[in-house]
Amino acid sequence: MKTVYTRPKILKEAHFHYCPGCGHSIVNRLIAEVVEEMDLRDKIICVAPAGCGMLLYNYFDIDTLESAHGRGAAVATGIKRVLPDNVVFSYQGDGDLAAIGTAEGFHAANRGEPITVIFVNNGVYGMTGGQMAPTTMLKQVTTTTPSGRNHIHAGHPVKVCEVFAVLDGTSYLERVAVNKPSAVIKAKKAIAKAFQHQIKKTGFSLVEILSPCPTNWKMGTIQACKWIDEVMVKEFPLGVIKEVK
């Protein structure tokens, strides 16, 4: 009998704490698959965030450090400078990277630190209960934008890849999604490519992943996946935003 689908060895035998329909579990699995396929367990170091992704160390069988909220890129910088031949990635949400950790992410990118940021963009603060994120869509209702995000009071959705693209230190920036099988396949390729860029030391790499949060979006799982295509992608176009060959 041929095995066509199994748990990657990098993923521990643990139950995810993620809500049903959450994109984090898919992203976790994709990272595990890529680490296994690229044979990186021996030299990869993960920096986990504060936010929904914070329990990564319970799922990944790789060396993992939990960073303070927003500081992933700075911590990853410290690790990478000591261990330049290891692969170091920081897993960050939208509040983590695009609000409280804007400076750390921006400047790590600008220095061209050869680290990878896996940026999960679900447009909302998940762990704290559904408040507005910097990437929340205009008119989107959250617990802190009860009548919908209004740019006059709350600004516009932040396009991290486009902002980072103008920095000369960045070498690979791609926006993907995990809302349907074809997108998931592309997301996995993007993660692998980001690690390859890091290994080649071409500069800073980041993969932005549009990810459903049915719980805080107050939607069904399928509706949430559709909403990514129908609404989010219009604000956050998918594809390679920048690649330095």
Partner: peptide, 21 residues
């Protein structure tokens, strides 16, 4: 390694990263 960091917050977190390594 020397980095003139973007802030004191970044500096102490780089220290944390280097210490972890």
């Amino acid at each position: 390694t020397f980095i003139q960091s973007e802030s004191e917050i970044a500096a102490i977190n780089m220290v944390l990263g280097a210490s972890v390594a």
